[in-house]
Write a protein that binds this DNA or RNA. Structure first.
Length: 856
RNA sequence: GCGGGUGUGGCGGAAUGGUAGACGCCGGGGACUUAAAAUCCCCUGAGCUUUGCUCGUGCGGGUUCGAGUCCCGCCACCCGCACCA
């Protein structure tokens, strides 16, 4: 055991040296296993988790901010007597590793593990209170083997199925591309025109849980409203009527509408270009040409914004179920095949898209909803009227409310047997197949006789082959000479392995369970899960508001559904932190042609002189640069500040303090050089104050003691509300007051209190000071200071005196003074009298302990 | 288009309907020092006829003894989703 006590010879006492202290205390915590979570502890449990990082290579400021917040909570909870689980690991599968393999000729695993080693060292250098004994990477065969077992559990429970689905296919690289890899319809690497291809792919039945996932949102009170709304919209529940039109060729045309009440306003029907009926008309060259035209249209947001509604009028008509009218059938570019039936009834009067379409193709635009019955004949304006009102011009529906008419039409359709009321979800089943090497192999064997067969459990994990080749295009697993060749577990005959791997979101859909419990022979132990789950505080970026958080909720529900445990929601409270931003520096110039080129400069190459900014150029010269917007740190804008360099200069505690100061945690945090300088100074200022414990000091300083007791309560409240910026301000105030006070027992108490209050935020400084002050053990194990409730109350209060709604004076009065006394005191004030002048006092409002307002 | 958020000094931001600008940063002045760094002290929303007064929380109204905060109507910026029938 190393002696962790402070050695006066090793550092000058007037200056805190993070170079020495940081590693000293990191080692001490590590050797003592201070942050190792004990699931058998009798203490109440608290699970604090930050979204685990992708091992991209280096830790950036965003990570530092995210993990500092979690760390403060974890350390605080420990001080409050909780057994805390605060683990860390690596979301290690993904495309950057494959890209590195192609570009740098390194194995994805090698690249990933080197990154993990580097980033782990960085995280340890910041002094996070993490339980490293539970660390794992999702690319560890042990982890993904258990994931394969869970996949098979879900497969056997009918939650996984296979069907054909379209993918983006790069014909040059012979690979499937993610949507983000398709740029302007071309492959990002090859530049080749991307094709749509149908492949057999695996899906998870998240739609089975659509209702549960939606209802569950209502109980997630400690989630941001914004995230809940985003998920709600994503799940997209709607109710309406599904019914079939009879077509003039004898076929049926099923459509779905949320507005069956407007059915008398229908003037056309429209189907998607890839609707089977449209496909059936392809013999007509005009139809074929139109469908081709529809496919060309971009799918980007900008393209859709301006996209014109295009239609092709077929020779077919659809018979209106009530009026019997023949409605023309169009093929239209705005109808989506993958939403519901891929066909709509067009009601131009009350749907904006239908309105635009009808205007272009000169179809009738009828009013069937009006503000009032008397406005039944009011002409339509230049836009559809999707709002509420009363039904008009609609036979038996006329006069009904929208709601009643909906119910009536649905009832008639159901009675007549030509339609039924349904609920439709926007949420689609989750396609989990990826034609990639660096992911969890899907544990399925394709048998010539028995089709897809699960890999027998005793053959798990199905591991990735190491000897792979990234030089030729395509999926390395598919091309590998031997890997996919196996035998059918049923017949014993030769068979082929599934060569697709699982979407990386699968890896992050259950990692929090594996952190809580990691037996060797199964994914997790239900008893351990019951002890730790749900996660008490989950902290991460808003970019995961939908996919990751929805998939993790789905997996948790699905696993509960098949009896794995009794937890439905994985994250009791969610916090989405803001980004770390920085000013940008740039110069616009014209290297030759007509086009301006913008060159960005790194903050470290920019100096300020005479109110101007100068950037260092490649040649070593200087040019004047402009300060641009404050935006998220990114390589492309060159406004990145590397945490390592900052820690080397100011120490971990200063950086941690910066991350918590000033900006509320949900908002963006602008990084600044002056800010970190200030934090570095504050670390030293506290250190000097901590040296001033005076054991010979006697006497009470009631005002200071009161401030210390108040701070104990206030800082705790602020941390629990994650209002770290307010906690920081409180600590500054107490620091200032303590510095000014004369030595006394109270002052010693204030100094010790400060040590405890800053310990979750600046743990190295706190440990060093705690040790110097001759305390036993580690401050990391010490409890949160206790406050004396009697000391929270002030004896005297300052009371504002207002006249004509303005502050005229302040008076000091004993706490709890009677209204009459306060009124008398206020009226006795010279300033108040001057303001009052000759005016007659009509009324005096007294708020005890707060203010007196005189009305004249 | 739909949904959500934000708007307070030079900057980041405080403020259960009750003293707007806590706290930090920047800036100014001073002390210490041969000097610098470090540290400490003071000032720091705007204006004015400066013992004090007036104005001031995106804009316009309203409620109230009293509004940054509540209500109504706007504006600007940011984020998410988006031809979802």
């Amino acid at each position: 055991m190393t002696d962790t006590r402070f050695d006066p010879a090793s550092a000058p006492a007037d200056r805190f040296d993070p170079q020495i202290a940081d590693s000293r205390w990191q080692r001490a915590w590590d050797e003592a296993g201070t942050f190792t979570a004990d699931s058998n502890s009798p203490k109440p449990k608290s699970y604090v988790l930050e979204m685990f990082p992708y091992p991209s290579g280096r830790i950036h400021m965003g990570h530092v901010r995210n993990y500092t917040m979690g760390d403060v909570l974890a350390r605080y909870k420990k001080m409050r007597g909780f057994e805390v689980l605060h683990p860390m690991g690596w979301d290690a599968f993904g495309m950057p590793a494959e890209n590195a393999a192609m570009e740098k000729k390194v194995h994805p695993g090698e690249w990933t593990h080197a990154n993990i080693a580097a980033m782990k060292q960085q995280l340890q250098g910041i002094g996070f209170a993490l339980d490293w004994t539970r660390e794992f990477a999702t690319c560890d065969p042990e982890y993904y083997g258990h994931e394969q077992a869970l996949f098979l559990d879900m497969y056997e429970a009918g939650l996984v199925y296979r069907r054909s689905s379209e993918v983006n296919w790069d014909p040059v690289d012979m690979t499937v591309l993610a949507n983000e890899q398709v740029i302007d319809g071309k492959g990002w690497r090859s530049g080749a025109e991307v094709e749509k291809r149908k492949l057999d792919q695996w899906f998870m039945k998240i739609t089975d849980f659509a209702e549960d996932l939606l209802d569950g949102l209502g109980e997630l009170e400690d989630w941001p409203e914004k995230v809940r709304l985003m998920q709600e919209n994503w799940i997209g529940k709607s109710t309406g009527l599904e019914f079939a039109f009879d077509l003039s060729n004898g076929e049926k045309l099923p459509v779905y509408t949320t507005r069956p009440d407007t059915i008398f306003g229908a003037s056309f029907c429209a189907i998607a270009a890839d609707h089977p009926i449209a496909q059936g008309l392809m013999d007509d060259p005009a139809v074929a040409a139109f469908i081709e035209e529809c496919k060309k249209g971009g799918t980007t947001a900008a393209a859709l914004e301006t996209a014109e509604k295009l239609g092709f009028r077929t020779a077919l008509t659809a018979k209106h179920p009530f009026t019997g009218a023949d409605l023309p059938l169009f093929i239209a570019n705005f109808v989506l095949m993958d939403y519901c039936t891929g066909a709509v009834m067009g009601v131009p009067g009350h749907d904006q898209r239908d309105f635009e379409f009808a205007t272009k193709y000169e179809l009738p635009i009828a009013r069937v909803v009006a503000k009032d019955v008397s406005e039944a004949d009011a002409p339509m304006g230049s836009e559809a009227e999707p709002g509420n009102g009363v039904i008009v011009n609609s036979d038996f529906l006329s006069g009904m409310s929208v709601e009643d008419a909906k119910a009536d039409v649905i009832a008639r359709a159901e009675e007549g047997g030509w339609g039924e009321g349904t609920t439709v979800w926007r949420l689609r089943d989750w396609g989990i197949s990826r034609q990639r090497y660096w992911g969890t192999p899907i544990p399925i064997i394709h048998s010539p006789d028995h089709g897809p067969v699960p890999v027998p459990r005793d053959q798990l994990p199905v591991t990735l082959p190491e000897d792979i080749d990234f030089d030729t295009p395509g999926n390395p697993l598919e091309r590998h000479p031997t890997w996919k060749h196996t035998i059918c577990p049923i017949s014993g005959k030769p068979a082929l392995r599934e060569t697709d791997t699982l979407d990386t979101f699968t890896n992050s859909s259950w990692y929090f369970l594996r952190f809580a419990s990691q037996p060797a022979d199964k994914p997790f132990d239900p008893e351990e899960i019951a002890k730790w789950m749900p996660v008490q505080h989950y902290i991460g970026g808003i970019e995961h508001a939908i996919l990751h958080l929805l998939y993790a909720r789905f997996w948790t529900r699905a696993l509960a559904h098949i009896g794995k445990f009794d937890v439905k929601e994985p994250f009791a409270a969610l916090f989405t932190q803001g980004m770390v931003t920085h000013e940008t520096y740039y110069r616009d110039w014209r290297p030759g042609g007509e086009m301006d080129v913008r060159t960005y400069f790194e903050p470290k190459d920019v100096t300020r002189r005479d109110g101007k900014l100068f950037g260092k150029t490649f040649t070593g010269g200087e040019v004047e640069v402009t300060a641009g917007r404050v935006v998220k740190m990114s390589k492309s804008k060159k406004n990145v500040v590397d945490p390592d360099a900052i820690i080397a200069q100011y120490g971990a505690d200063a950086v941690r303090w910066f991350m918590l100061s000033d900006s509320p945690p949900e908002r963006d945090l602008p990084w600044s050089h002056d800010g970190i300088e200030g934090c570095g100074r504050f670390v030293q200022r506290l250190w000097r104050l901590f040296q001033q414990l005076d054991t010979s000091a006697t006497g009470e300083d009631k005002a200071l003691a009161r401030k210390a007791h108040q701070a104990i309560v206030a800082v705790a409240e602020d941390i629990e509300a994650l209002s770290f910026n307010k906690a920081v301000a409180r600590i500054y105030e107490l620091t200032g007051a303590t510095e000014k006070a004369k030595p006394s027992e109270s002052r010693n108490f204030a100094i010790r209190t400060l040590m405890s209050l800053v310990s979750p935020m600046m743990p190295h400084l706190a440990e060093e000071a705690w040790s110097v002050a001759d305390n036993e053990g580690l401050i990391a194990n010490a409890p949160w200071p206790t406050h004396d409730p009697a000391m929270l109350v002030e004896d005297e209060v300052t009371i504002a005196v207002q006249h004509k709604g303005k502050l005229r004076d302040t008076i000091t009065a004993p706490k709890g003074a009677a209204k009459e006394d306060l009124e008398a005191l206020a009226l006795a004030s010279e300033k108040v009298q001057r303001s009052l002048g000759e005016a007659e006092v009509r009324k005096v409002i007294v708020v005890p302990d707060r203010l007196v307002n005189i009305v004249t």
